[in-house]
């Protein structure tokens, strides 16, 4: 039974292992697009092949032992090597060698991943975790945004991570390993993207009801695009001239949006309202809403404003009852903030 079962099962393990080795090309930690993730993936492949070899050897031994044990007529027939040699070589010498290799490579890789670059950081970004969204600040450049983190491609970027409430964790698998956002303690994480692209990441430390959909995007752009983006964002918004949009702005104040959401040049959030929401200064130019969960378009935004809990139960933004006209004006006003 076991012989048959063992034979039947063992190739499945192999196939699965090889499948694991093979199907790692479409995104994720094994499809690295930055030096941190790349070093880590190299380290993983070393451990993977060593681990696979160990697993095959141990399973082979088990299978052989079972076949032999079943054939043994008289107890105490001797295996090819003594127990002592078996334990010493298999249980001690070989593991020590493998572990030494793994530990050494781990330390080396770890050092290279966290080592800050020689030069000053091209950009320093503060990422502050909130339940359940990411506040993003460029302190030297005087830019504030949320959930989408543009960075220049090909240069190391320093992220200064902290939290406004509970513990969150910053993770963009294609760029680097994760780091926690602790309240009261600032962590530093260096990321660098090799290619211009949009990289998905989400909160990796359980932070409450909406932990699952606390997403973010890292948008790697060329230096020129990035500089342009910064320059655009440094402009404060101004009150709209268009009558319809002005009506939208009035709804923004009357419906209470302004309590939590600031728009630079128009208003700042009221600290007394408790936890602030994402800054909306250049909201119209964002790709996504609801912490990178949905595309930023008219329909999604309107639905989100009316009842955020439909999409994301537990977020702190309350549902808002609005006349269709008011909603229309509000959405148009928000989308106009480019």
């Amino acid at each position: 039974m076991v012989q048959v079962g063992g034979k039947r099962y063992f190739p499945i393990v192999l196939v699965l292992l090889l499948a694991l080795a093979g199907c790692s090309t479409d995104g994720g930690a094994l499809d690295p697009r930055g030096p941190g993730a790349a070093d880590t993936a190299t380290h993983w492949w070393l451990m993977f092949w060593l681990g696979l070899a160990v697993y095959i050897v141990v399973m082979g031994l088990l299978l052989y032992a079972i076949m032999r044990g079943r054939r043994n007529a008289d107890p105490g027939s001797n295996p090819p090597i003594s127990d002592r040699a078996f334990f010493t070589v298999g249980g001690l010498v070989i593991p020590i060698l493998i572990l030494a290799l793994v530990l050494g490579d781990s330390i080396r890789t770890g050092q290279s991943v966290i080592e800050p670059p020689e030069d000053e950081a091209a950009v320093t970004i503060e990422v502050i975790g909130h339940m359940f969204w990411w506040e993003v600040r460029y302190p030297d450049l005087d830019v504030v945004t949320a959930n989408e983190i543009p960075i220049p491609v090909g240069v190391p970027v320093e992220l200064r991570l902290s939290s406004a409430d509970v513990i969150h964790s910053f993770w963009v698998p294609e760029l680097a390993g994760k780091r926690d956002l602790n309240p009261g303690k600032e962590n530093v994480l260096w990321i660098e993207a090799d290619e211009e692209d949009i990289y998905w990441g989400q909160c990796a430390e359980f932070c409450g009801v909406q932990h699952a959909l606390m997403g973010k995007l890292v948008i790697a752009q060329s230096e020129d695009e990035f500089d342009q983006w910064i320059a655009d964002r440094q402009e404060p918004a101004s009150e709209p001239d268009d009558e319809f949009l002005r009506a939208g702005m009035d709804v923004y104040f009357d419906a209470g949006c302004a309590m939590c959401h600031g728009i630079d040049g128009i208003t700042e959030p009221d600290p007394a309202a408790g936890a602030p929401g994402p800054d909306l200064t250049h909201f119209g130019s964002r790709l996504t809403i609801a912490s990178a969960i949905e595309d930023n378009n008219y329909g999604n935004l309107a639905a989100w404003i009316v009842d955020p809990h439909q999409l994301k139960p537990g977020v702190r933004m309350p549902p808002t009852e609005l006349d269709p006209d008011d909603l229309d004006a509000l959405v148009e006003f928000l989308l106009s903030l480019e």
Binding site: L99, L103, I107, I114, R179, N187, V188, L189
Partner: peptide
């Protein structure tokens, strides 16, 4: 011995964060 390896090859200031 295994725990001594980091002492020998690593710099105690290498930080993965501020803690």
């Amino acid at each position: 011995i295994a725990q001594s390896v980091p002492i020998i090859v690593q710099d105690p200031c290498e930080a993965a964060g501020s803690i």
